[in-house]
């Protein structure tokens, strides 16, 4: 059907028919729009449609009120939010602890190993230092000075041990065993 009515007027007329307009506005529509030819034609069509549907529309009854329905959704959202904050119910405290400790333990192990290796390479004397003498006539005594980071090895000739022993003066802090230079001492003087 061709109608010259504006869309807003058509909606207003439908609202008037459904009884959804306030009393004052309903009176205006009844006196104005509903009295026009287009208005009457639209009203007739709407009434026919309503009458056709009302006889065949199945009645649907909500099992619960609107407020109760939305309150259920709200409670469900709250429950799920709380579940995220809580640890998984399937994990025991031991499992949760282990879960936290495994990465920490791994990291700590690597750190300690690297630290020990680095420390060992940077400080202190080497406990596995070895001293080997060419023959039994040569004696040697070793002095370690941790403060000055120094090792002194004093070589001496045991075969001359019966002579006077000035080494006792030379190395008072060391247990000097014998005296005299090994063969081939450098030409110091």
């Amino acid at each position: 059907m061709k109608s010259n009515m504006k869309h807003d007027d058509q909606l207003k007329l439908q609202a008037w028919l459904d009884g959804e307009l306030p009393a004052r506005e309903a009176a205006e529509v009844q006196a104005g729009l509903a009295a026009t030819a287009d208005g009457r034609a639209l009203l007739a069509e709407l009434r026919n449609t309503t009458a056709a549907l009302s006889g065949h529309e199945a009645g649907v009854t909500l099992p619960e009120s609107r407020e109760f329905f939305w309150s259920k959704i709200e409670r469900q959202i709250a429950r799920e939010a709380a579940a995220i904050d809580r640890p998984a119910p399937g994990l025991s405290w031991l499992a949760r602890l282990r879960r936290q400790l495994i990465p920490l333990t791994g990291f700590a192990t690597v750190t300690v190993v690297c630290g020990v290796v680095t420390l060992h390479s940077l400080t202190g004397t080497d406990p596995v230092a070895e001293m080997e003498l060419a023959n039994e006539d040569i004696g040697a005594c070793t002095y370690h000075d941790q403060a000055n980071k120094m090792t002194v090895v004093w070589f001496s000739d045991r075969s001359r041990a019966t002579e006077a022993a000035p080494d006792a003066e030379i190395l008072p802090a060391m247990a000097v065993e014998s005296v005299a230079a090994p063969d081939g001492t450098p030409d110091a003087k």
């Binding site: 001293m131 080997e132 003498l133 040697a140 002194v152 090895v153 063969d183 001492t185």
Partner: peptide
């Protein structure tokens, strides 16, 4: 000394650590 071995020292040399091999002279 005069191409004859006197002694051999084997150790891990640390940074800033000094080793002194010494003996009496004339």
């Amino acid at each position: 000394g005069d191409n004859k071995p006197i002694g051999t020292r084997k150790e891990k040399l640390k940074t800033d650590w000094t080793v002194v091999l010494a003996g009496p002279a004339e």
